[in-house]
Design a protein around this nucleic acid. Sequence first.
DNA 1: GGCCGCGCTAAGCGCTTGCTCACCTTCGGG
DNA 2: CCCGAAGGTGAGCAAGCGCTTAGCGCGGCC
Lengths: 219, 219
Amino acid sequence: MAAAEETTGAEETTGVHEATCEEAPWAEVTPEAARKLLVAAVEAFAERGYHATTTRDIAGRAGMSPAALYIHYKTKEELLHRISRIGHDRALEVLSAASERDGTPTERLADAVSSFVRWHAGRHDTARVVQYELDAPSAEHRTEIVGLRRRSDAVVRGILRDGVAAGEFDVPDVPGTTLAVLSLCIDVARWFNVRGSRTPEEVGALYADLVLRMVSARK
Amino acid sequence: MAAAEETTGAEETTGVHEATCEEAPWAEVTPEAARKLLVAAVEAFAERGYHATTTRDIAGRAGMSPAALYIHYKTKEELLHRISRIGHDRALEVLSAASERDGTPTERLADAVSSFVRWHAGRHDTARVVQYELDAPSAEHRTEIVGLRRRSDAVVRGILRDGVAAGEFDVPDVPGTTLAVLSLCIDVARWFNVRGSRTPEEVGALYADLVLRMVSARK
DNA sequence: GGCCGCGCTAAGCGCTTGCTCACCTTCGGG
DNA sequence: CCCGAAGGTGAGCAAGCGCTTAGCGCGGCC
């Protein structure tokens, strides 16, 4: 399932950003059986959590036998790590692509927030796994992931600093505000529901506006 | 605007105050053995998640045998439900107490946000269980919990509506902004770390400021 | 003092879990 | 036409799970 719903017609609001493979999200995972298992795992982990998901459940969703999992992945935890790693890469990619585009800090911040939020809403199953199952992996896997998170932090902090320097933003506490902005975006994955009344684009636009209000110089 | 605590002023540090009993959070759980088990479970659930926590682990932390758990609780899930129920009650209590205090919508919103955030930061282990283990309980337990959440939503939405009516706030999308405000506060439980550099009070003050910026009428 | 009942434990039951292994296909190359 | 590798299966193992049960110590009451 999980069809691409956002790139089909619609780059109207934020202009001409080209897709960084939003349509076939797991295309780089080969062979096909390995991808099917991974997609099934994302679904199951997002729905019930890593620990509550059994290897039999994953294999079942992929239409295979439980043993098939171990042909492509050494352990259940390696499967989680692969998901988490790729997911973090994608999220960071989306965020930093937006931040590197030309424009004023205000425009870059709005673009970054709305892109990041759209990703967390549109791929909220992946995002949920990525954000909530950090404790499950082993220590070495965790430090690798933590590095990627720090880079997201640096991206947002950079935009805020630029905005303050340019006089566009009024932000007394840059690290604290960075934390709040990222937290706001990330938590979208927790509450977003496909059956809800808002599309990822709407949430992205709303959040970009709210964040701009948080940082804009008051009069 | 650092602290909105002039009402409870004197007793905050050494206080023997009992109003919303922040010091002895699980005082209502009796007998003592049941409380010790529950506190141990909160610790374990917050650290590893509900499904990854074993009854042996909980009992071990409480210094008891695994079987002791079943004298006070029918199942492991009932233990989770008790924690979740009490936690939700407390969080809602904190939030609505702040919202019912006298003051302008601006003051009430700042007070509500900073109180709610202080609770989520100070009791972040409880909050984490409360917020992340919603899927674990059975259906009937879940609907009970969902009701409490809707009341939190109503409290914040009420303040926002009052502020708009009074002309203090400029909020184009009240339900959306309500969602964002609550999401921001709740997610504190995910990232807050006691070993971090910020106290719950500092985060509360920062967040109250950020939220006021999100809603205040622009000039 | 004898006895009951409560709180608790040691031992263990039945079951599920992550994972393995012997075996079965399918298929391109000599 | 056979071969060996690659990808898949069914059955099942050891370990760990939630939970139960038989029995133990001990304080209170007649």
